[in-house]
Design a protein around this nucleic acid. Sequence first.
DNA 1: CTATAAGCGAGACGGTACGTCGCGTCTTAAT
DNA 2: ATTAAGACGCGACGTACCGTCTCGCTTATAG
Lengths: 209, 209, 209, 209
Amino acid sequence: MCSRTSSRSRTGRPRSAEADAAILDATRAALVELGWSKLTMGDVATRAGVAKTTLYRRWASKNELVVDAVAVLFDELELPDRGSLAADIEGVVRQFAALLERPEAKTALMAVVAESTRDEPLRQRIRASIVERQKRLVLQGRRRAQERGELPPPAPDSGPSSGTDDLIFDVVAGAVVHRALVSAEPVDADWAQRFTALLLGGLAAATQG
Amino acid sequence: MCSRTSSRSRTGRPRSAEADAAILDATRAALVELGWSKLTMGDVATRAGVAKTTLYRRWASKNELVVDAVAVLFDELELPDRGSLAADIEGVVRQFAALLERPEAKTALMAVVAESTRDEPLRQRIRASIVERQKRLVLQGRRRAQERGELPPPAPDSGPSSGTDDLIFDVVAGAVVHRALVSAEPVDADWAQRFTALLLGGLAAATQG
Amino acid sequence: MCSRTSSRSRTGRPRSAEADAAILDATRAALVELGWSKLTMGDVATRAGVAKTTLYRRWASKNELVVDAVAVLFDELELPDRGSLAADIEGVVRQFAALLERPEAKTALMAVVAESTRDEPLRQRIRASIVERQKRLVLQGRRRAQERGELPPPAPDSGPSSGTDDLIFDVVAGAVVHRALVSAEPVDADWAQRFTALLLGGLAAATQG
Amino acid sequence: MCSRTSSRSRTGRPRSAEADAAILDATRAALVELGWSKLTMGDVATRAGVAKTTLYRRWASKNELVVDAVAVLFDELELPDRGSLAADIEGVVRQFAALLERPEAKTALMAVVAESTRDEPLRQRIRASIVERQKRLVLQGRRRAQERGELPPPAPDSGPSSGTDDLIFDVVAGAVVHRALVSAEPVDADWAQRFTALLLGGLAAATQG
DNA sequence: CTATAAGCGAGACGGTACGTCGCGTCTTAAT
DNA sequence: ATTAAGACGCGACGTACCGTCTCGCTTATAG
């Protein structure tokens, strides 16, 4: 976020912590009301009751601001233990889908990813703030399934992550996003179940084969 | 595109067909050079050797223009018969990934989808111009696999499409897009193979179960 | 107006005479409704039920069109014999003032004169169409006063016009226009009387001195 | 000009006074080079080295801007005491005529008056900025002539101005403008002398009668 | 207890792009 | 050849945001 190096001068008026929160709240509110493309920095500043200079002192651009504003939504993602891998997958699918139904997430997520295709620093920020938060769930779910014995134990020389984790992540996140935003169809219980069955079947085949 | 109903007035100077082509070419060139967010209507008009008004007479907004400009890229997608369902899937995955590596597609696709979350007509346009073009390949691949006997024949009372087709489509397209644009990792032969194995395993399990 | 040389080709469809009248009527109507600066060629064409090309075939610019449209108003100016020079002057003053109260004249006259300061051909057109029509009244009034014996007879070697005529013309027309448009005060009977007294007094002094 | 009331907000960056001057200078320069009808706000802004928004923040329209730009020319008008009423009148006539020969005044004056026929606020602005500045000279000249005894002293109950002042003003200003801009003839020493003789004769007759 | 320094709200600033309007020209098919 | 219709290249419009700047003021720590 607005990183202040520790070696920074200690004199002068400190930045207002309330302003930070007000700005992020205002950003989410503006996303809900206006959507990504009609959100303006001036409007956010006005909503937050803050001067434009205050805003620019903290975030260099609309993209970074929105990433930070939306990132906290992804903190809510959790993986409560539902007893089986299938139930866990269905849970995370439904949870992610619920997130994507929130208008601020829906409009912002694809937009910042689109911007990130031509802005590497932004891509890093998205990865750190959003993507890793999601990926964590995949690792956690896999580990839990291995503990339950639903999946074979990890190869002893493998690190904390693996290519299969990446594959699963892209399949799960990609399918849900595509269903929700491109096909614009509901990610309901039925779809989640059918998707989970497909995924588990594939995993089983890969494990056995 | 700029559909002219057949009942349209016959009087007056007809619209230039060359202008249409020049504008779409210019739009793709601008996407490559500038990316979505820095593309301007004025710049496109200049590149196309056309007045701004001519551009606005045909497309109401940047969004619609870009959808039309990018849509033709999806005409190139084909499904040559590679002899097996696995090979066909790998083929379509690689083909779609190749498309997503083109800078004009990469920068435009997510952007217009993001916009479409708040613009239903735009979503319809995307569906008609882009999504259906992709989905066609899924149907074609499934039909071909059924002819080969790799998949059970269609239920006699089912229509040309099914819920499973939709599921497969979201999984394939979503996974490839997510891999390419969000994870920003290459969709290489290895990944395509592993993804195909996962998908086929899931399909087999679903068919047998 | 729209001069057609007599040696003009006789083939092809002849120009519509009705269109000419309709265009000039439409121009005056537009002047009344919109004023000079908001009058547009396209709007005049629409009002006249005529294509823009038809309009441009006859008049090269808005300025010329408006001069022609307004010029006919000045045909109404006459100098009925009221029995004395004073009465004649008052009459012409009131008549000219009445003309300047018509909104189409008010908005157009100063505007075209302003344009004519940088457009010599336009100035000539104004002179021929408008100014000479006014000046005629001065000559006529002077001649009539000389016939009545109110003014000394013309010098035998003088032409039909003189420097004094020009001076009188500028004073009368200038004062009325300034009163009506710049001071924006009514040219009522009282003012006309006081102005006439001033002018006649000056004429008498000049004649005697 | 752009009057700033004393109760104006004290916060925020104050407006640049230099910008005001630069804009008015640029406006006069553009009037000289291009004339009224080809003067554009964008061009003025560029010449002044100022953004278009800065210009619009101060003046709502081209009309008001031009009035302010031209108004300062009328500050130069003075009435040096030449010893007699006749000489004073000739002086003011020549001075006003000299002003009207400046291209920026010539092209702008009639144009804004024409616009003012449909724009009451503009008319007030012209009156305050330009007309009153001219009228002042008439009052001053009359007062001076009364001090000299060339004119009878003012009626004791009359205010600072009178209907006769207005009449004289319309006659002088109107005649000079008409001569210079409509008849487009030079206001030379001879014309000024003949005009002054006419006017003085009329005044004498009015005073005696 | 003052001096220094940064933060802050306000709003003017130089820019860039917008989407619209009017211009005057042109290309149709129909008189 | 002229007409109505309307597309065309062009240029200006007035507005909206951008990101920066200059104000006067506030709120901290350091001397």
